[in-house]
Nucleic acid binder design. Structure first.
Lengths: 196, 196
DNA sequence: TTGTCAATGTCAGTAACTGACATCTATCTA
DNA sequence: TAGATAGATGTCAGTTACTGACATTGACAA
């Protein structure tokens, strides 16, 4: 048998989600979370850098997934398409946890501290994807902008996927968001500089 | 004469910038900042919600400026152009404080806590600008995306403006960033959906 | 003079987070 | 099989960000 109850980290995540939802983020202490997980406060901080991070343990997995997909995209594919396709493919990570994702997102958007953390995770994602694009030979400025635009698409698509009662998959929402963005960003005519 | 030394808030900002630069953000306590400003810790927290916020006191001014510029843009102007032009115009806020802005940005990007705060300020900016666009009659999805794309342009342009030794103005960098973004986002041909 | 009021100060308390060190227990090793 | 090992956890003391309650200050008005 195992030395201790298995999956301490997972238990902490589970306990945190429950408590944040039950009594709110501010009304939950780290000691509360640890107690519900059958651990001590000190152990919580060995697994998570702070009280917010416990809701973002999956971000590393997502980052690895997206970077790999972007890296594997056909060499001829345009940068933003490579990113959008990777984002669309990440639906497989979320599909089975739609309810969890919805609850988590509700928590995040209603607590600025959590929202901040989400935003910097997206920034890290964008940075990693930009680097992957550069490794594909995309020039630096375009790579960074394609990564940022990809994150804009991701955010929109993810939200509308969560809101979607018809349960279309994430890829569908990604395509819609990309098309919308193209409509917004495309210049009226091809030109060398903005006309304003 | 005034009851107390004037501009307590400004003195706190000044003291914080000095100390964060002298000994680093983590090695500076709020009590340190307050002491240098000739005030107490408690007073610091009456002016700023937390230790980070002291570096973002100008964000409200910037938001009001951008919202007003977007609102005043010619009705025929495309949403992203309206945002980009507003962003370009905001150069007048920064021009005279280029060195301050550079020092501040160096601090922010080297401290994740500060970076988080900057990101949520940008998110608030995007939200306010999106709303302003909707008041102009821009449909909801396009308004939000144009605001986000505008912030992407702002970030790029602001950074390259800070890095620019030739001292071209912010508007120049905004135009360059917008042109780059258009190149990245534009679909290969006009189409109804992404081709991937 | 005296009262008012906004800005500041004082003080005690909570909780996030950290460093140092102790303890536990499955497994490895002699 | 005794004992050493090592990773996971616990204990404890300390710092500091942040808050609520209440006192004080000092220009100004009545």
């Amino acid at each position: 048998m195992a030395r201790w109850e298995p999956d301490a980290s997972g238990r902490l995540v589970e306990a945190a989600m429950q408590l944040y939802r039950e009594r709110g983020f501010d009304q939950t202490t780290v000691a509360d979370i640890a107690a519900r997980a059958g651990l001590t406060e000190r152990t919580f901080f060995r697994y998570f850098a702070d009280k917010r991070e416990v809701l973002f343990s999956g971000s590393h997995t997502l980052q690895d997934f997206l970077v790999e997909k972007v890296t594997q995209a056909p060499p001829s594919m345009r940068p933003l398409d490579a990113v959008a396709r990777a984002v669309a493919a990440s639906g497989e990570i979320f599909e089975s946890r739609r309810d969890f994702a919805r609850q988590r997102q509700t928590l995040i958007v209603s607590h600025p501290e959590l929202h901040e953390r989400e935003l910097i995770k997206f920034a890290a994602l964008a940075s990693a994807i930009g680097e992957a694009l550069r490794r594909r030979g995309v020039p630096a400025p375009a790579a960074g902008l394609a990564a940022d635009a990809g994150m804009t698409i991701f955010k929109r698509a993810f939200q509308s996927w969560l809101d979607d009662t018809k349960k279309k998959d994430l890829a569908h929402h990604v395509r819609a968001a990309q098309t919308e963005l193209e409509g917004v960003v495309a210049s009226a005519r091809r030109r060398r500089a903005p006309s304003w």
